[in-house]
Each structure stands twice: as structure tokens, then as C-alpha cells.
Amino acid sequence: MNSQNFKDDPKNDAQNNGGRSGLECSQFETLLADALDGVLSPGDQAAFDAHALSCTLCGPMLMEAREGRLWLETLEDVEPPKNLIHNILAATTMAESAPGAVPVASRTKKRGFRPLLAGFFRSRVATSFSMAFFSLSLTLTVAGVRVSDLAKVDWHPTALGKSIMLQYTHVESAVVKYYENMRLVNEVESRVKELRKATATTDEDNDKKDKPKDKDKKGPNDTSGRPEQHPDYSMEREDSVIAQSTTKREGVQL
């Protein structure tokens, strides 16, 4: 819609204030950036200012744009990290070019091939790859698979399935055999333990039967179990009077 049509429409005329200051709102908006930069000609600047004062839409628009610009002016430049240049230099000249080589010219010659392998030779990728290879080779070794055997493998699906089934049967039989052996060993061990227990019980019974006979043989004069007493000391004490009562009662001699 051109400016003439805009003016002809009474509804738009009320909104745009086209007739009052000689400037339309759309023109005002176009001039807004230049006006804030202060590069408008005196005539345009006067028309712009007049429209800003008279228009209820464009006046606040000017205020807001000016305010936003002032807010942005408060932002100061920040200092980049000190190691930034060194990091960039390390990432470009040192890492991507041979020592002493021309950084850009030499690289442009190799550009066709280098990016393909660049990712591969990054340390993280190389580490992951080597770990995966190590894990795979370890698994194959444990499973008893040899790399040289792979050349002899028939890769037809049916043959492959049979081979897998055969391998599975081998592994299963080995596991079952191992389990059976372990069970036999455990059974033998438990039998030996039971025999030992039975032998120990029989010995104890025999000991109990033998003990009363020994006691009968020894008799009452056997003092082997008593502490040794001095014969003179006990004889002296048997006839001595320790205390005697003086009452009518019969004296008690100890």
C-alpha cells in the first residue's frame, strides 16, 4: 500500500497522522534508525521531530528505541581469556600443519584427503576404537575363537547356523561335564567327612567303656588324684585340743 492510498483511507489517516506533520508512520519508522544516529538532514529531522511529538504511536516508539539503544551502550567490551590466542594457535598451526610448513598453502593441497582421517586420529576416537578392539579380541580369545579360523568359515547362513549350533553344543557339553565333575568331587568330600565323623564317634564310645574298669582297679587307696599331704603334719593335729568348754555341758573336743 503506497502513501497516497494510506492517506485516502480515513481509518489509516487517524492512525498514521499523515497529514499533521507531513510524515507518515511508516516513513517515521524508516527514518528512526538514521534519526537516532543523527544523520538526518535538517528538514527531515524537523519533520521527524514534529511527527514524534504529534503521533501517539510513534512518540513512544522513538522513546523506546532511544532507551534500548542507551541500555545497549552501557555494555562494555569484555576481555577475552588470555589463553585464547594460544589455544587457537595450537589448534591451527601446531596441530594441522607440519613443523615449519606454510599454514594455509600446504594445507590446501592436502585438504581433499586429510578431513577424512582427521577425526579418526583424534585421541578420543583412537582410544575408543582401541578399547573396542581389545574387548572384542578378549571375548574371542575367551570363547576359543581364532582369527585364522574365520578364513575357513563358510559364511552361508545355513552353514553359519549349523556352525553356531555345533559351537554351542560343544560349549554346553563342556559346561555340563565340568558341573558333573564338580558334583562328584563334592560327593566324595562329603562321604569322607561322614566317615571321619563315624570313626570319631566309635572311638569316644570305646573310651567311655574303658574308664570304669580303670577306676575299679585303683580302689579307695588310690590318691593319685588328690594333693600330696605331709604325714607328720596331719598326725600332730589329730590329737591336739584347740578349744574346751567350761560349762556343765559335755566338752566338745575338736
Binding site: T30, L32, A33, D34, M63, E64, E67, G68, L72
Partner: peptide, 17 residues
């Protein structure tokens, strides 16, 4: 470009106010 700059400044001012 000018239109975006104007709208950006105004939006910033509106946001803060």
C-alpha cells in the same frame, strides 16, 4: 536491517521497563 535494529532496541527497552 534498520527495522530489525529498531525493533530490537524497542523490545529490549520494553523488556527492561
Amino acid at each position: 536491517v534498520k527495522s530489525r535494529i529498531n525493533r530490537g532496541r524497542m523490545e529490549l527497552a520494553r523488556l527492561l521497563s
